[in-house]
Amino acid sequence: MIPVVPAPSHPFRAAYDVERAVLSALRIVHVGQSSALLEAHRGPAAGPRAGVLVPVTWSDRGLAPGGFALTPHDGLRVRRLLLATDPGSALLDLSRWLDASGATPVDLRMAPLRIDPAATGRLALLLAGGEEPTGTDPALDARVQRALAPALADAVVQDQEARVHRLAQRLIGAGPGATPAGDDVLLGTLAALHAADRAGTATDRAHRGRAALVTVVTDGLARTTAASRHDLAAALGGSFAERAHRMTAAITDVHAVGPAYDDALGWGATSGVDFLHGLASTAQALLGHWQNRLPATA
């Protein structure tokens, strides 16, 4: 039996890169409070698209790459429907969603952004103030990965290829969480680099450093979880979840810092804060590159 999920009844949004080819036979991976994770069928005929993820989100969760964002109402509907569906056997068909008149395509690529020193400073201050232990065991504490963020940022901005490789490999798939903390740090790092790169404010060196990072992360994708792999692959192409876009505002606008931090606290157990660490460290490194001077007078 293939239960068919009907098109949402309210206007909804679809990521511009959602892949039609994967939508007709999806398996339920996880149903959460404000999102559901679906996965392209791995059956015999599935081909290369097998295992591609389609995140369906609602409430204030925001759109994720390759996914759909529904109104709270539709989200609740879909959630109840999925909860009542046997995840083991049922396959769902969302292909009609793309044809629905209520679907608005959204480009999730990171826009060019100007990094603001005051905003970045405030963000770093907030992060410095909130360093609580994040796990039951010191070896599996997200702070281990967060602590690598400044060094990685520095290595990228200085284009120290060997150091970028070494640090990125220590981050991929490392740490607590369904999306391991190290991956979230990498996402934050990539977000800041993309924003600066597209704004043309990154130095040539930083640009080359970013290319080195992209190479090592691309090679390492198989070393992490499916959910993380999905997010990282999108980030390598410059696309980020809306939630990540909202967080990234924290390095461009001083007034966005508080809301972004609050937002981050609600993103996974540690993911949001991990992301902000990557973001803030990289923004600081990028700023430091051309701002590291003593003011002459008061």
């Binding site: 991929i172 490392a174 740490g175 607590p176 369904a178 391991p180 190290g182 070393r223 992490t224």
Partner: peptide, 15 residues
């Protein structure tokens, strides 16, 4: 001690 993590190569190394 308790560890509950995804079994990525990096986490297996940490464990």
């Amino acid at each position: 001690r308790v560890g509950a993590v995804m079994a990525t190569p990096a986490n297996l190394a940490i464990l």
